[in-house]
Design a protein around this nucleic acid. Structure first.
Lengths: 189, 189
DNA sequence: AGCATGAGAAACCGATCGGTCTCCATCAAG
DNA sequence: CTTGATGGAGACCGATCGGTTTCTCATGCT
């Protein structure tokens, strides 16, 4: 039972990195991260090569949970249209949270302008996986141009995330009609 | 003639701030800004209250040129649909530039998470003006729900900007079909 | 009991942050 | 020529950056 109650230094660092870089930006200091995690810098630098690697690892660790949250369950046998809409319903729900600042995988790529940064590479992979899901569904659903539809959907997904992150729009009643219009235009079943 | 040849310290600072914060992020140092502008810190702090105000002023100064570039000419009497598409054609052209990093007014709001930052306020106003243009055109064009269409369009606009900024998509043949689908769905003339 | 290991606290490193201040060269008015 | 205002160069301020090192102490193994 103690296995759950006491997260390791590594887990606490990953948690603090995910939370603080999301709230404060990637320029948050190593001192602040370690203090929040209750871990000394010495220990941190034994567990991770650098701050950059810590940031990348914290994104990596959340990647599967992120996919699980957004994507329909593996035994979900609804048609592609509903499976795609499911993703946007989840996204809309997330965007409604008061502390939502936009999809972390988008934000981190914008803040770190370097595409070669380890964290940027993790973020890019996460987005590519989501796009691949859209493309597969678009093919399954017989869309006119599955690749175009997938690109349109990730475009709307990231746009909604960015707009919600800067609190430019409540998004109420915005995303679903937009996605529906695109699905209709592609004649997706 | 000398009026053009020799930009003032103020102009050089605004230019350097716009260029460097766009390329390197808002965390670029004051030293670097002043060095790039060929202006001493002493002079900079006489011309501007703070780095934050310099950043805000540099965004403000580009705002009208930004609108002029994107929006159709005042004597452009094409129907709303073409006037809206004009904006996205311009945006697509900008996104194709090799050094394009996404709309600066979006990026600056994401990087400065504080909505009260003077630069964030300038950026928000610029976006609101663009949204207002979309809404006006949507009304003129008899869209089903002009407000919804305007929100959808700015959503796509920012999404495309963000995706292009992180170089996630070339955007070739993506934006125009997407916007067209939304205009059709809204039955815009 | 003795000793190696590991980790936390914190000093320390050079660099840079935003911002202020001193020094000095320039230049125009008298 | 003298004087005073201007502004550039850059030292300087305390704070913080990412990262390293020292010191200390608790733990556990033999």
């Amino acid at each position: 039972m103690t296995t759950e109650a006491m997260p390791s230094s590594r887990e606490r660092l990953l948690e603090a990195a995910a939370t603080l870089t999301y709230q404060e930006g990637v320029n948050i200091g190593v001192d602040a991260l370690c203090k929040a995690a209750g871990v000394s810098k010495r220990s941190m630098y034994k567990l991770f090569e650098s701050k950059d690697e810590l940031l990348a690892a914290s994104l990596e660790e959340r990647a599967s949970a992120y996919a699980t949250t957004l994507l329909p369950a593996t035994d979900d046998d609804r048609p592609p249209r509903e499976r795609i809409l499911h993703v946007f319903e989840r996204a809309e729900a997330q965007a409604g949270a008061p502390d939502f600042q936009g999809c972390r995988y988008l934000v981190v790529q914008i803040e770190l302008k370097d595409p070669d940064h380890p964290a940027s590479q993790v973020a890019r992979r996460v987005k590519e996986n989501l796009t691949a899901f859209f493309r597969t569904e678009a093919e399954q659903g017989g869309a006119n141009d599955p690749d175009l539809l997938a690109r349109q959907l990730i475009l709307v997904f990231d746009g909604a995330s960015a707009r919600a992150g800067i609190k430019a729009d409540t998004q109420d009643g915005l995303i679903i009609p937009t996605v529906t219009a695109l699905l209709d235009a592609a004649h997706l079943r």
